[in-house]
Design a protein around this nucleic acid. Structure first.
Length: 504
RNA sequence: GCGGCUGUAGUCUAGUGGUAGGACAGAAGCUUCCCAAGCUUCUAAUGCGGGUCCGAUUCCCGCCAGCCGCACCA
């Protein structure tokens, strides 16, 4: 993991990797064989943390409406569906390589530089013809350019014995929700708004995967696609944004400065953002500031300029968290108003009618997409939580911590281990609690601090007499005495967000 | 994908053309009545494949992986 000759990498990045590998959060996949760039495996702590994050996410976003549901669509998608969605054409670039200096260029960019016109959607042969016609040469060395080769960011699949059915691994989970819209609209008894959430793996053949779990070739998304009637949704009182709530935003022209400003929800609506959109910005902001306990100065929405965002996204703000290991605010998700682009595309592509009837009107629902990169969110939480100094402590939100609690006998004799094991057995019915009797009590606390366990429970000699145990708080190291009978309630409180109270 | 740099136990590292030393972590034991204490013992490494050489972890080539810069990021 050493950073070579350039010390520009924040050492926090190396620290985070080291901790992650050492303790079992994640590491390069298949590293037994040298690894495969852009692919990572989650170890036991990472997998547990991921599940916890997903649980909280589902609780939060499915909790918004009883008509929001989790679905689990396939990862392999046939070419026809991805053709309709635009991925086959737009997710693909024609590359040309200089025969002299081997530099690769995007064919459409080279042509655009010469003609100042857009050249999207050319075939390889057309691009070659244009390049010859305009006598385009390598911008770097003036060498002759080789033939244009299509490069698609999607991983192709050869389906069937002859591999004749063209398909791809999905580049985003969203398509699965759109493809299931019609079925679910019937199954959920034809009500709008309807939300379809998907949590799952996606694949993009990134040219240069880097920065840990920030740019991966296989990654996890959690997305909620909200289908709604554009004619009425802004009138629904339930989607009024909380008027006095402030939303932390960096608009497109100011995000480069690295900061943001707080805007009252009302001001954003006056500025022209739809009410339902502002409402969901507030929901997402709460998820980060409250549920994930992100410090306010490290959270913002960053607006994408018209040039940066996809043409079908009418409004697009990235969700960003400021991470020292990655050098500043980095995208962990997005809030996209995609209009009717997706359903219209699949309606055209499949020839199936996707319009629905609302009060006698034909409506092609619009989509608001709340999209989250799970790996990026987990990395961000590790980045924010990690403090290394005298003590290495991972200050994860209690409910995200992979090991919610651990039980120790103060010493490993005098019957304390047996008693401690009994406490563990009782708690394991509810939580995956740890147990450790090796080395000194201080070392055991330190081990748990390092993986973010919010509370440790110690059984000592007094316990044998009075049935009380010591709770020890990760962040303050302070302690409190609790009767064994109240342990479950005490843990419920702590994991539910009620602050630790120490006795003296 | 291009260029530069790098690759030694789980982690962080030292070092050498004659098969590697430490720290931390880990295991076992002793000790230990609340914060990485101490003592003893132990486990454990030169990314992969070629080449040069009597001999390669060291030198050379290729691959893989990582870091930085560029490009890319519908």
């Amino acid at each position: 993991m050493a950073g070579g000759a350039y010390p520009a990498v924040p050492s926090r990045y190396d620290e985070l990797w080291s901790l992650s590998v050492r303790r079992g959060f994640f590491w390069p996949a298949v590293d037994l064989y040298g690894g495969l760039a852009g692919f990572y495996d989650y170890g036991h702590l990472g997998a547990a943390m991921k599940r916890n994050w997903e649980d909280l996410w589902l609780e939060t976003f499915l909790g918004l409406d009883e008509n929001y549901q989790l679905v689990d669509p396939t990862i392999a998608l046939p070419e026809a569906a991805l053709k309709a969605s635009g991925h086959v054409d737009h997710f693909s670039d024609l590359l040309v390589r200089c025969t002299k200096c081997r530099e690769t260029w995007r064919a459409d960019h080279l042509l655009e530089d010469v003609t100042h016109e857009a050249h999207e959607g050319l075939t390889a042969a057309e691009a070659d013809a244009k390049i010859r016609e305009l006598k385009v040469r390598c911008p770097k060395c003036k060498g002759e350019l080789g033939p244009a080769q299509p490069f698609n960011m999607m991983f192709p699949l050869a389906v069937g014995p002859l591999g004749t059915d063209r398909a791809y691994l999905r580049p985003e989970t969203a398509q699965g929700a759109y493809l299931n819209f019609k079925r679910e609209f019937e199954a959920l008894r034809r009500r709008l708004p309807m939300g379809l959430a998907v949590i799952g793996r996606c694949f993009r053949n990134e040219i240069s995967p880097r920065q840990g779990t920030y740019r991966m070739r296989e990654f996890l998304q959690a997305e909620l696609q909200i289908f709604f009637d554009p004619a009425t949704w802004n009138d629904e009182p339930q989607f009024d944004p909380p008027a006095e709530r402030s939303i932390q935003i960096a608009f497109a022209d100011e995000k480069g400065k690295g900061g943001f400003a707080s805007h009252p929800a009302r001001a954003l609506v006056e500025r022209g953002l739809p009410k339902f959109y502002v409402h969901h910005l507030a929901v997402v902001q709460d998820f980060y500031l409250r549920t994930m306990a992100v410090p306010p100065e490290r959270f913002r929405f960053a607006e994408l300029s018209e040039k940066e965002r996809a043409f079908y996204n009418k409004i697009h703000f990235d969700i960003e968290v400021k991470q020292d290991s990655l050098g500043g605010f980095k995208e962990v998700g997005g809030v996209h108003y995609r209009s009717d682009h997706d359903l219209a595309a699949h309606q055209a592509g499949s020839k199936e009618r996707l319009e629905v009837s609302v009060d006698g009107r034909k409506v092609l629902p619009h989509v608001l997409e709340l999209s989250f990169g799970i790996d990026r969110n987990l990395w961000a939480l590790l980045d924010l939580g990690l403090s290394s100094g005298e003590r290495t402590v991972l200050r994860l939100p209690p409910r995200v911590a992979p090991i919610p609690a651990a039980v120790f006998p103060l010493v490993s004799k005098d019957g304390l281990p047996d008693r401690a094991r009994a406490v563990v057995a009782a708690l394991r019915r509810r939580w995956r609690v740890g147990y450790d009797e090796s080395a000194s009590i201080g070392r055991r606390y330190a081990r748990m601090d390092e993986v973010g366990t919010p509370v440790c429970i110690t059984v000592d000699h007094e316990t044998l007499n009075d049935g009380a145990v010591t709770l020890r708080d990760r962040d303050s190291t302070k302690q409190r005495r609790v009767p064994e009978a109240s342990l479950v309630a005490a843990l419920d409180d702590l994991l539910g967000g009620i602050p630790f109270v120490a006795t003296e």
